[in-house]
Design a protein around this nucleic acid. Structure first.
Length: 585
RNA sequence: GGCCCCAUCGUCUAGCCUGGUCCAGGACGCCAGGUUCUCAUCCUGGAAACCGGGGUUCGAAUCCCCGUGGGGUCACCA
């Protein structure tokens, strides 16, 4: 290893909403690359679009990243909302994968500015950009342009009519002195870059060398009329000033790269290593979009006005809000409203943002693991010869490399994510699972916490092996949430397991009842032990006792293990439910 | 439409750079069995792909060209 300049990467989201999966992967790779090379990972907020950016969104992104365990070395400081360490998930190893040790800063806050290269919100760096801009105007590398939107539109239409690409270039007769006079007088205008008339070759670590000819490069805007820099300008200036050596971003930015390279040359900046990664799409091939949630609800929305009204009752939306939303497919409803409508329609929304996945109950390490595999592959084998694809953050930090990033776009496969999540949940230490489930409930389902009370630990053991996401935890133990006299019996199950058979299930239940009444501890192990002894003493198969009990206590033939099921309902509840079932004869 | 990128099972991919060991391997999903008190697990087996056409070569999934298909991008958004 040579003593080359330290690697510095950055993730630079614009704060217009929660982080979505594409952004997560970009951040993850930037993080991993910096870690792999002992470098630094910067988080920078690109809030140069005043209309769309919000502080809330920026905060949301910080929280999303922190939750995922993608911690930035430099950037806005973020402190976990509660006490230290709570918000920072420990990255336990995925199923079957040994734990990798990594030197991870375990302080409770993330971010900071040790090199004094901030601030990290671009809106607070206008003076920086203006300094460079003034210099460029002075050198005639940039110039004020006073075209109106209408004039630009007309030019664009003309080009389209000639079947040419529209490309803005400073006209030959441009009167620089006059323009500068108007500019200094404060006349509103944009400032454009004088794109040199030469081709630009972009070298990309993933895609190789790509040539762009000058006839497709234009004098793009550096500073907007509102005084804010454009993305192109801010990104180039900031990357230079912050010492960014490697730019990892989505392929949608590939066509921007020659602009950035040309700008860097004009300013005498270094050109970082670029690595453009493939895009992520929905399973149906459509682009993943925040509007997908609206789309799903729209599709499920009943046509009749009165049913619509009842669905809307759960939200604070007015009928006119609903009407405009229904009429305009580009409109989005607030997430809260979408969620309550979805609940009313018994519809599950597609997960798009990090927050969606978190709410559904995916583990952060699963999300990172799965997303890392979308467009990257370690190219290693497990001991049994299968491909290594389950790994943790430490592994990524140790093995991530640009040359194993793929070139083709990938579809997001929820089934595989689900499989990963299930395996990761199953592999958790039971106490760890309980703790993390409790945290999830705190945030998303406090009612469940209250319903379970001191049975929570018991429920955690029962639920852990049978769920794919934390959000599914109610299902396997639904029977334990009903009142003891509120069991709804599946008639077919009652017929088969209680009324029929020789002896009938009801007879077996009656026989077993005293055992349950006198059991010293009403714990899963004690119950299972007693059940087993009971069956052995009568040469009965376990199913002959277990199924009638299950039906009596839960109403159905499906539940967690017998001991867990009865213990969850409790001795008193179990006895009451059995006695009620005996009356079904 | 111009420009740019991409192309292996349904999906994610390994293999491609450094042609032969590939009648193409793994994972998820699917199908069929098996274990277990049900469920979920777990185990075993199975179906399933080199986009098409030319070339180069003794030999091509691997190299080259063309075609086709998919995607990105063409803003005072990022």
């Amino acid at each position: 290893m040579t003593a080359a300049a330290p690697v510095i990467t950055r993730f630079a989201p614009s704060p217009t909403g929660h982080l979505h999966v594409g952004g997560v992967r970009t951040a993850l790779f930037c993080w991993a690359y910096a870690r792999r090379h002992g470098g630094r990972f910067i988080l920078r907020i690109e809030d140069t679009d005043q209309k769309r950016s919000s502080e809330d969104a920026a905060l949301g992104i910080l929280e999303d990243l922190a939750w995922l365990g993608i911690h930035w070395d430099e950037g806005p400081t973020w402190v976990p909302p509660h006490s230290a360490a709570v918000g920072l998930p420990p990255h336990s190893a995925a199923a079957g994968v040994p734990r990798h040790s990594v030197a991870e800063l375990d302080s409770s806050s993330v971010g900071g500015d040790p090199r004094s290269v901030g601030p990290f919100f671009q809106a607070r760096r206008l003076d920086v950009y203006n300094r460079y801009l003034d210099r460029m105007i002075e050198a005639d590398l940039a110039y004020p342009a006073f075209d109106t939107a209408e004039e630009l539109d007309a030019l664009r239409r003309e080009a389209a009519a000639r079947k040419e690409t529209f490309r803005y270039r400073r006209r030959p007769g441009y009167d620089r002195d006059a323009a500068l006079r108007r500019f200094r007088a404060g006349e509103p205008c944009v400032v454009r870059f004088r794109m040199p008339d030469e081709p630009v070759r972009v070298t990309d670590a993933v895609l190789g060398e790509i040539d762009f000819t000058e006839e497709h490069l234009d004098d793009f805007v550096l500073r907007k009329a509102d005084g804010f820099p454009t993305y192109h300008f801010a990104v180039v200036v900031d990357d230079e000033l912050m010492g960014v050596t490697h730019v990892l971003r989505g392929q949608e930015h590939l066509n921007n790269t020659p602009r950035h390279v040309a700008l860097q040359r004009a300013l005498g900046f270094r050109t970082p290593v670029y690595a453009h990664m493939p895009l992520i799409f929905n399973a149906d091939g459509s682009k993943m979009s925040k509007r997908d949630k609206d789309k799903a609800v729209r599709r499920a929305m009943p046509a009749a006005a009165d049913t619509q009204a009842s669905v809307m009752a759960a939200t604070s939306l007015s009928p006119s809000d609903l009407a405009t939303w229904l009429a305009d497919k580009t409109r989005q409803l607030p997430t809260d409203a979408l969620l309550s409508i979805a609940r009313a329609l018994d519809l599950s929304l597609p997960e798009i943002d990090v927050e969606d996945f978190r709410r559904s109950g995916y583990l952060p390490e699963t999300l990172c693991n799965y997303l890392a595999l979308l467009g990257w592959n370690p190219g290693l084998k497990n001991a049994d010869g299968t491909d290594l694809e389950r790994f943790d953050m430490a592994f990524l930090a140790e093995h991530f490399s640009l040359d194993r990033i793929g070139k083709s776009n990938a579809k997001f496969d929820r089934d595989k994510l689900l499989a990963f999540n299930q395996a990761a949940i199953a592999a958790l230490d039971p106490d760890d699972f309980e703790r993390r489930w409790r945290e999830w409930c705190d945030r998303y389902d406090p009612e469940l916490l209250a319903l379970l009370g001191d049975r929570f630990a018991l429920a955690a053991r029962a639920v852990q092996p049978r769920i794919r996401t934390l959000g599914q935890c109610r299902e396997p133990i639904a029977f334990a949430l009903w009142p003891d006299d509120g069991v709804t019996f599946d008639e077919k199950a009652v017929e088969k397991h209680l009324r029929k058979g020789d002896p009938t299930g009801l007879a077996v239940l009656r026989d077993f009842l005293p055992t349950l009444e006198s059991l010293a501890d009403f714990t899963p192990d004690a119950i299972d032990g007693a059940a087993k002894a009971f069956c052995e003493s009568r040469s009965l198969g376990m199913g002959k006792l277990a199924q009638p009990l299950r039906v009596a206590v839960t109403g159905s033939t499906v539940s967690p293990g017998l001991g867990e099921t009865l213990a969850l309902v409790g001795r008193e509840g179990t006895l009451r439910r059995i006695i009620a079932a005996l009356r079904l004869a």
